[in-house]
Amino acid sequence: MEKRTDKNSYTILFAIGMVLVVGSILAFAASALKPNIDENKRLEKQQNILYAMGVNDNEESSVAMISTDVVADKFSEYIVKQLVIKGDDVRVDDQAYLIDIKKEQTAAKSKSYERQLPLFIGKKEGKISYIVPVRGKGLWDAIWAYVAMDENMIVQGVFMDHKGETPGLGANINQRFFMDDFIGEHLLDDSGKFVGINVSKGNADPTNIDRTDNAVDAIAGATITGDGVSAMIRAELKVYSSYFIHLKNN
């Protein structure tokens, strides 16, 4: 005798019911936990920005953010000003670090939209840092970074991260050996023109002694992620270069 559960009509009804039940449970869980997750992401942004300007708990070769317990205090202590640049207009905005870079990049594709560019000014032991968030594409998914520079666009520190680069290869862009190579690198060439920093495979400078060559050493086996980092720095930091020229002239 055929079992009740073997009928096609039962199978279809069961599938529909199952999808409805599981779907509503997941939707409920996602919306119930969203405030917590958003808060975590907000604190992470603050940690990343502070990391780039050198406020972190790094020891030897580890990457250590300052603890989430103190990050809000440290953020208001070290970040003295947050700016939003839009065309020639520069305004102060305490929430500038919450600007969604991805949305801005998408919106800026239409000509009528002028992109909002956040810039954070930090001050640590008398040294001024200009920190900007950048975002680009790696091999599999998004990569992003916070770059801290001085007024001559010389890099003071970077923090990089990625969504899904290959573990052990491209994923290593968030490791110290790669990120620390950028410190001291010049984004401008000798004549003061913006050229960016190239993640280079053949620059004959593997220990990165020459800091003015606009190049750092690439990670073996992670060519496309490295090219993504170069392209991200070139395209996304260039849009800030007019601000730095303006800064110098005043």
């Binding site: 199952m18 999808v19 599981v22 449970i25 997941l26 869980a29 996602a30 936990l33 917590n36 997750i37 975590n40 992401k41 604190l43 992470e44 953010m65």
Partner: peptide
């Protein structure tokens, strides 16, 4: 479906309470 739903719930809980 059942295992995927459970895993997504675990992932959401980790994201909310053990982000790092």
């Amino acid at each position: 479906i059942i295992v995927a739903a459970l895993v997504i719930i675990v992932d959401l809980i980790l994201k909310a309470f053990a982000y790092q």
